[in-house]
Design a protein around this nucleic acid. Structure first.
Lengths: 193, 193
DNA sequence: CCAAGACCTGAATGAATATTCAGTTTAGAC
DNA sequence: GTCTAAACTGAATATTCATTCAGGTCTTGG
């Protein structure tokens, strides 16, 4: 008999992220992914059912990781809602810091998969939950529409991460991080004294 | 001789928007676009060089229209910077009100075209310009990073429009419109008295 | 009317590449 | 050392359309 090295699946996963990021899902070639992973074309199909499932696996992994970390953040008792929101922004930004390719794939291919993504839903629900907690504790404006607000923030952050992935110099993550937090809390108007 | 009806190009343009919106650029079929426009497959190539150029034309048309209307808005003397920003949000939302398919195409396929999009650049530049005007007149927070801020707003609005296009009931445009303006101006914190 | 020439058609072509699978290699059991 | 079964290979297959183009069809000027 023979056992899988355990390394190949991860190599393919990573090579696929690079390939999807560089060429986009539809222009990505299985043969190039295999080459990038140092395996034969057919071996990709030993670990993933097909090209589509490979993309879905990547996205699902990302949302699962994020949802898991957010879950821990949201249940902390030592942070108020605003601090949790800032922590969420940090979590998302940190996730991509070491992997611009992954950022590009998540941002660009997110709408490719029409299937329900449970972990992505969980991620969004946790965002709404923190906003509601903030309203309940009087920290946040009670007139906020939590669903629209959370999606607006998500869309803004997603777009900025995409820009960073394409031009890290022009949109450094720390600048993005700081600015998003400021905008969130205070909006654009001159500070009221 | 024979002259073009002038109707066919527009029919193809509209059919392509529907097809791109429903199936995404890469799954879209020229044959279905032709069918939707009531012409033969080959006729698409009388009006557009190829599939890619058809998408580019659609996106360019959208950004050209928006940039043009924004240009008029930005040069108005009777509005201050905040009113202009609100007007810009209205412009973007109004553009898609009658055409959810177009909204989906613009949002989903925006990153498909790697070519420079002059009108899109113009659109972004006008946004930055209004923010700078607002800072100069003391209306807006002088610590704003105008490039990051304008992109954040753009990303948030883009995402919300996408959600509306997919579930108009859950994310009605008027709710989006109101919420975005509030968030922009005041952020999420409880109003300071 | 009747060329003339542009418009229009849609089946055929060709290219691209996801997926398969018959054959080869190798790790581990005995 | 030998055998076995799973892992692995990569050329061949099969499919899917974008694009072409040879042949028809209209519209208009004279």
């Amino acid at each position: 008999m023979r056992t899988r090295s355990g390394q190949k699946e991860q190599n393919i996963w990573q090579a696929a992220v690079r390939e999807f990021a560089r060429h986009g899902y539809h222009q990505a070639k299985i043969s190039r992914i295999a080459e990038g992973a140092g395996v034969a074309t057919g071996s990709v199909y030993l670990y993933f059912k097909n090209k589509k499932q490979l993309l879905e696996k990547i996205l699902a992994d990302v949302w699962q990781n994020l949802a898991q970390e957010m879950e821990a953040l949201v249940t902390r008792k030592d942070l108020n809602a605003v601090e949790k929101l800032e922590g969420m922004v940090d979590l998302v930004i940190d996730m991509f810091t070491d992997n611009p390719s992954l950022a590009i794939v998540v941002v660009n291919e997110h709408s490719q998969t029409r299937i329900a993504q449970p972990y992505y839903e969980r991620f969004l629900a946790l965002g709404r939950q923190v906003l509601e907690e903030g309203i309940a504790t009087g920290l946040l404006n009670p007139h906020l529409q939590v669903d629209v607000t959370s999606q607006f923030i998500f869309g803004g952050v997603r777009h900025l991460i995409h820009l960073w992935a394409q031009s890290p110099r022009q949109y450094p993550l720390n600048k993005i991080r700081r600015e998003v937090k400021l905008l969130l809390k205070r909006g654009i108007l001159t500070e009221v004294q």
